[in-house]
Design a binder for these strands. Structure first.
Lengths: 297, 297
DNA sequence: AGCTCTTATGAATCATTGA
DNA sequence: GTCAATGATTCATAAGAGC
């Protein structure tokens, strides 16, 4: 069974919305990719989840996600515990343990190495420049398309590393050098949200992926509290899905996951409680779809 | 009170050895820095700790470490859970939670980003190219010397980044341009265990440290199961200790921590159950001390 | 268009103040 | 006391102004 609607954004609390079995039938989604609100943050959408209640708050949502995910699908959770009273909090670790009890398999922890981390200087702490991307699955033999995030070494030997940016992003996005891919990439680059000097991967990742992800540019959208750069969902979508597969983001924010899914020819379902974010996301999506539908023959 | 002996290697099981209160008085050590054997590995020294028993095995040791550490000292634990049946194991997270119950403060998790990670290729897993360096303390106001791992930006503006390698390692090691530092660094570079093309930090870390550590070269000593490169202990020793401070490594292996401590003018105490490792470590230490004692006036 | 300079700001953290 | 709220601090990057 398929979800009742595809390529849709629901303005709702995902804890409620996900229970709708017509919208979200069992085993109907190929990838769940999300960056939930962190604990102890002032968050207008979710009322700021306390660290102590975080696991308890997340588990019912995760239960629905488990139900919805296809057997060979993947669930990628971007999160990082923050500091309180000079200590790292433990709710992320407790969440991992709780998700395992729920039946999830904790396959891997990818390290997202952020070059431009939040500024700050303190006497006994450095700036936090990495986040966790936790990969869960239902079965041992989940689907993984490693070749999709790889590029033959030969392509790189010819060129200087510094000269590569836009063309490589285009190729990485579309897999071809078609005019459409170029136009989409140009549009994505031109959007205010994203810097114009986009390079997807450093040489080492491009050639040989590991479980450390590094993107030279970051998104600095101040409107959404949980923005990840376009490259992050792009990478995981390519790694865990194929064309026309269905991707769910229960905390989609301003729609980054949807944009990446559309650009890669995948279907998306997004849920977001904050009305203003949904409006913004829809605007971006409409604009991107306009470019794609005006495809030249 | 001071430990009964300094600059010494004990060939013993640290779970037993650490209980000796003459050797290890309360609050007598400035830094504990170690890379314990991981779970489920064939380890001749410790008989291979099963993942299920790992926390239980480690806690009594950690209790002694807590006793021995000075109030403002630090405990740095280099570890990474391995994969079993396609899943990351959870004993490291459980260990963190257990250590907190024991009284330790979990201050930070540093990400050690290993450029040349262990080779391998699997259908649903990339190579593991990062490890955790967990930082624990007894008090909120532990000692931290951030300047020791920093280099003024001015020093870097003059030079090309590419041209810097050995000289910068020397400067980073000794803090001076003395001939001794140069000789020691050259010796360390020349050792088979360590590659010759040593650069301590990439530009961004060198100038402004974060909680992601990246060393361009790695050690590939196959004799010891838990070898970290010289740069890793060097960095933490500089960050958390001063000259003549005392550093303890309860799983010192082939002596990397001791070599770093000696080169930086600190005192060390190492414990290692495997006789052959102790022999190797002593040989390296003797050789290094020979170079230092033959210092030219 | 290209360049320099200026300004604004972000998944933060800590110390201080006030209830 | 404990807990919550506020302000200062920090720098890589983007966006805009001015030439």
């Amino acid at each position: 069974m398929q979800p009742s609607r595809l390529d849709v954004l629901y303005n709702a609390d995902c804890a409620v919305c996900l229970k709708n079995r017509q919208r979200f039938p069992n085993n109907s989604v190929d990838l769940i990719l999300t960056s939930p609100p962190y604990a102890d943050r002032r968050n207008h959408s979710y009322g700021g989840i306390a660290a102590e209640e975080y696991v308890e708050w997340f588990l019912p949502i995760a239960e629905q996600l488990y139900r919805v995910l296809r057997p060979r699908g993947s669930f990628v959770l971007n999160i990082k515990e923050n500091v309180k009273d000079g200590e790292r909090q433990t709710y992320v670790m407790e969440l991992i343990l709780a998700l395992k009890k729920q039946g999830w398999r904790w396959v891997e922890e990818y390290c997202w190495y952020k070059k431009n981390s939040y500024p700050g200087k303190w006497p006994n702490r450095f700036r936090d420049s990495w986040e966790r991307c936790l990969h869960f699955s239902k079965q041992r033999n989940f689907k993984m398309y490693q070749d999709a995030v790889k590029v033959p070494i030969g392509d790189w030997a010819k060129k200087r590393f510094k000269s590569m940016s836009k063309n490589d992003f285009i190729r990485s996005l579309s897999g071809t050098n078609s005019r459409l891919g170029r136009r989409v990439a140009n549009w994505l680059n031109r959007r205010k949200v994203y810097p114009h000097n986009v390079v997807v991967f450093e040489k080492e990742h491009y050639v040989e992926p590991t479980n450390v992800l590094r993107f030279p540019t970051e998104c600095t959208n101040r409107n959404h509290s949980a923005v990840f750069p376009l490259e992050l969902p792009t990478w995981f979508i390519k790694l865990f899905t194929r064309k026309n597969n269905i991707i769910l983001d229960p905390f989609i924010g301003v729609g980054t996951t949807a944009l990446a899914a559309i650009a890669l020819g995948r279907r998306y379902i997004g849920i977001e409680a904050h009305k203003e974010f949904v409006r913004e996301a829809k605007e971006s999506i409409r604009e991107l779809k306009g470019i794609i539908s005006s495809r030249p023959a």
